[in-house]
Every structure is written in C-alpha cells, then in structure tokens.
Design a protein around this nucleic acid. Sequence first.
DNA 1: GAGCACTGC
Length: 783
Amino acid sequence: MAKKRKNEASDGIRIGDKILSLSGYLTKKPKIDGTSQASNEGISTSQEGLSTQNEGLSSSTEGLSRSKEDKRSKPVGNPKYFEARQALPLWTRQDDIRQKLHQNDVLVLVGETGSGKSTQVPQFLIQEDWCQRKKVKVKASDNGTTQEIAVGGMIAVTQPRRVAATTLAHRVAKEANIPGHGKKDGERHGPLSDGLVGYSVRFDHRVPKGTRIKYVTEGMLLQELLRDPQLRQYSAIIVDEIHERSVDVDLLSGFLKQILAGDKAGRGGIPLKVVIMSATANVGSIKKFFSDSESEGLYGSAPPATNPKTSVDFLQIEGRQFPVEITHTPKPVPDIQEALLSTLFKIHKQESLFDKHGRKDILAFLTGQEEIESAQRLIEEHAETLPPNVPKIAVLPLFGQLSMEAQHKAFQPTKEKNTRKIVLATNIAETSVTVPGVRFVVDCGKAKVKQYRPRLGMESLLAKPISKSSAIQRAGRAGREGPGKCFRLYTEETYESLEKTDLPEILRTDVLNAVLTMKARGIDDVLAFPLMDPPEFESVEKALLHLHILGALADDGSITSIGRKMVMFPVPPPYARVLIAAATPKYDCLLEVIDIISCITAGDDIFLQIQSEETKEEAEEFRKELWRREGDLITYLTTIQLYSAENADRVRWCKDRKLNVRNMKQAMNIRKQLRGLCVKQKMMEQPPADPQPFYPITPERAAVILKCFLKGFALKTAILAPDNSYVTAHGKHVVAVHPASVLHGQKKEAIMFLEHVYTQKNYAKKVSAIEAQWIVEAVDRSS
DNA sequence: GAGCACTGC
C-alpha cells in the first residue's frame, strides 16, 4: 500500500480571495530512528490453526501459578447462570485468554456469533492482578508537581450500537452480580443498581458506584478521550465488533495504538490492555496495525513511540452455528426478481414447514425498499396460484423506514398454522436485527451503499456488489436455529470475484468530523495519525479546508475556540457551527435552530413516506398546517413546535400526519440534550419547560434562521438558471430538488440544501428558499 | 416523484 503523500509542494490553497497556508499541518515529521524498532522481540503474533486445536486444554502455565488458574476457571457470579455460561464455546478457552493477556498488551480475538465473547471476556479478566485499581504518582504536565492518582480497575467494552451496549450490560449484570450483595434499600429496579456492571450510551447512563465492567458505544469512549487522553480509569479496553469498521472504531483504534505505544508516564507506568474482538476471521490487517511498531501514519510519518514493543497475540474461537449448505446459480441471472421468485417457490414447495429444530422460514436479502415492494407484489400474486395442499405464504417486508409495528411483524412467527413466512429485508437483517425462525437465506448479492465523493462534495447511494465477508454473514443467518440452506442468486465465479471485505466507512464518508475529532484530541498532524485504512490525501485536505471555512481551524491549522466549542455538540460540524452562530446577537435564534437540528439529526426523515393513495390525501390534509413556503427547515421547525405544544396524544398526532413516532421522540431527546449543552456552554439561559403555546414563525424570523444556517452551509447553495435548473454555487453542478422536499417542483431565486445525494439523479435534500445575496454575506468571514 | 444501515457527556 503506497501511502505516499501527493501534492507535497502545495504550500497554499486558494479559497475565494484568500490563500490558506497548509504548512502548519502538512509538514512531515521526521521519522523516528528505526534501530530500536527493528527488532521484533515481544511481538508474538498469530498462532492461527494451532489455537483451535487447543480446545479444552489450558496450554502453558508460564507466568501464572497453576493453582491460581484452577481457582479462576470456576465461575464467579450468580450460580443461576453457571450452566449456560459453561456451555459457551468460549468457556474452555478462558485460561488461554488470561494467559495471552498476561503476556501481551493486545489480544485479537475472533469469535463467531454465539461464542459468548461479548459477555464472557470482561468477566474472565476482571479479577486479574493487572486489572485492579492502583494508586500511582504522576507528574502534572503543567507545573511539574507530583500528585497521587488512581489508575485502572475498570474494563470498557465498546459496541457500535446503543441497544447492544445496554442489553449486554443487563445480561452481564445478571450473570456477574451475586444476588443479594451490595443492593441498597430502595434500589429495586434491575440488577444494574448492584454495581459491578454498568453502561454509558447517549441519553442513558447507568454507572453505579463500584462498576468494574462498563459497556459503552464507540462514540461515548471517544468522548471520554476528550476528557482523559490516557483513559486512566481503565485497565483494559475491549473493542467489540471491530469488523463493522465504523469511523468511530477506526479512530478509537488509532488512539488506543497511541496509548499503547506511548511512554505510559501519564498512566503512572501502568499499561493499558486491549482486546480486539471480531466476528469475521480476516483480521490480518488489524493484527498488523496493532503490532507494527513502525506505525505508519496516514502518509508515512510515525507517532512519538517511546515504547515500540506492542505485543499482539491472537486467538480464534469457534462459533455455535449449524451447518449451512450454500448453492450458487450455474449461470448469471438476467432478472433478479424472476430468479428470486423461482428460488423462493422452489424452497417453499420442496422443503417442509417444520423440523425438530422448529420453523423453517425464509429470509431474502434485497437492496432496497423499491425492490422489496415489487418483489412482495410478485410473490403475493404468484402465491394465489398455489394448489390448496401447499402451505400458504406470508410476505413481510423489513427495512429501516418502516414503522416499528411493521418491523415487529417480521420478527413474530406467523399466526396462521399452515403458513410459511418470507421476510424480504435490506441489510438491516445482516447486522442490526436477527429474524428468528430463519432456515433459508436467499441472497441477491448486492446492497445499497452510501459513498462520499470528496471531489464533487456530494454523496452517492447506489446498489453495489457485497463483499465475500458480507455474503458469508448473510448465509450464516440460515444456521442460527438449525441446519440451513443459502441460495445465492449469483454464480460461484461471481462470489470468487467479490472483495474480501466491505470498504470501511472511513473510506466511504466525508472525513470532516473525523478530522475535527482528531484535532480536538490533540492530534496536530492529522496525516500522521495511525489509521487501519487511511483515506485519500485529497479527502483529508478537503476536510481541513472545510473546517477552516467553518472557522474551526486557524490559518496555521490549529484548532480554534470555535472548533473546540463545536466538538462539544453531538452533531456534524456544519450543524455545530450553525448552533454557535445562532447564539450570537446577530442571529439570536438558538432555540429555533436547536429545534430544527434535532429533527434533522434524529435519523431518517421525520416525515414517513405515504404508501397508499387514500392515506395520502388524509395525511396531506393534516400536513398542510405544517408546510411552509420557506422550505423544509422551517417546515421541520413548525412540526416540532406543534408537536411539543401537543398536550393530549402525541402518538395519535404523529399517526394522523404520518410522522415517524420513533424519530420524533428521538428529536425531543436530542433537543433536550442540545439545550442542556447550550446552557452549560453559557450560550443561553435555561429555556421554559414544555409545553409552550405555538405561535407561527414570521417570514422575517424565518429569514434570520435561514441566514444563520448559511453560516454552516454556504457551500451547499444553488441558483436558479435561465433554463429553470438549479446550478450549485460551488462546483456548478445541476441539482434537482428531491421529491420529498416541500419545495419540489417550485422555482425559487436560490436554494440552500443540507444534503446532496446522487441516486437516480443529483438530488438536493432538506431544501430552503434563500436570496442569492445571502450567500455572499455568509461567505464573508468578518460578519 | 423517490427512500442501505448505524451513531455522539
């Protein structure tokens, strides 16, 4: 992998009439002398293959006394769960795990679904000597005085999703807490009040006194890093589900690598142990990333590594999966819908509805809503023609934009006795949710992926071939409850031609937030930051320039006070910039801006798409009261203001207007969080509590709010051309107003859009009507 | 006239 820095010569970049010097953060740091790093001592790497045969044997006893180990192999915690825990594939390997971490700082653990790694590994480690809290003396960095602090004692387990973190915490709390111990009077809600196990996710924190194991979302640990760069309260960090490769986990890996390679002075000499857990076996690059002492940054320079020896070990645990028989098509299929239909009905006719393991339902992976809905129609039509002696079919769609109830239906067994369930799902069923009862998987081999194009400054959302790893994951969904079958609607050659793994998110998204995250955590030379998959130089450069335009970075590339303020808000940097502008006397519209940003960042659109024609008319009658000529942002504002003024039945209110109830609730959570943060940042006074009476916003006020949004989105504007198309002010692309926008089909002098996605066309989403003159004013930094 | 999936003191 050539990580050569391009554009070495660029010493200034023109933005409008301004030349920005990049010398401050594009200079290559001198490479650290390699002599001490050249030796490989201490790096004991992979023992793949061997380790799986070791099952049941606790191998070597070096470094640990035998008797101690024996004692530890017995479960600690609630006896009620001993039997289930001892049956887990991981159980017999616990001495191995302890041994490896006793000798090494990093353990890469591969364990398939059902191996029990997320629940058991922290429990195996918590009693280790190195995992105990210790009092140490550290020198304060500012005045050089020595102070005594406590280091370690806790284990953090990171998860990509909030639900995973909270459910795992509850599960482990039940297992680990000895009943009746430590429970205080009046604390009767759930085992988490006992201590030992806690969790911390956005909007929900339960970290009782005495917590030793803490489940957190990846973003939450990144946030903790802002306060404590050495993660001093932790003895170990367990990074779970690293194979999902979120941007957050990539950044976290970089910071962990730096802590591991650092001189440990900030931790009073106490090392941090790291367990990296993956459900897929292709962890070669991850092992290499953590063991390479000659750590390459994005473009070849190294972090200050005073302790180059990071020893990495490896262990693979077999999962608890039933075998899945995989069938490919002999020839490429010309029509996916046709192939799907014939495969589904072949399975349905040939396979029994039940066996000793239970139901035998079908899960089909398709690309998106449109494909799912047309397939549903075809299947239902064809099902009508089935002879009466064949079981019936119930088709259930499953995708993110569906209501909670509709999604729930896909998880529940069919009520009718003689009926087979066919779930037609997007990628949501690959990672986020598990559909019970599935014994057959049909895989179309594609998925829609969002990809950021740094050069165009826009995203695309298109169906692309999945990776091998994803295909294996999909097939695995057939073997959770009994032996299964997977039918791939593509040839074996096509499978062999697939990429090994998916493109990690950091290579698919705008790195704007990632770069600001690094800058705020003391990374001056972001190009030297260690990443498993460094983005292209141009992407980083674009992000740096964009952050400079937003005022988050100074001319020399250092973070500004605005930038520091921006990272306090859990929203993308342009939104954070708008929040800060809204608090200034010039705009003075913070409450309204918080309302709008809450709606936008609550998830997908708060307005549900309307399925049938009849409900459409009805809902549109209700929605008319929300629509505003100024565009989508002011429409969101009106919506959330009316929603929060609603006293009677908010769920009913949403249903009438076809609003996503879940997202509206989420928006209210975000609103509360943002208001709290703004009060804390002294950007406003404590606002009055809900419900507040609703007053429709005046056009003048709406103009102020939109001007304020331009402080974050001046680049995302377009002007109406003589041919009635909108041409972007930046880049001169033609954009069409997305059909979901209230401004769709309307002609305005100019528009501002918060999102820019290529699907069928170049679409502008979250659109507002503006005046061309406002764009000029917004770009002027002095105002 | 169109909508992969997550997430953040």
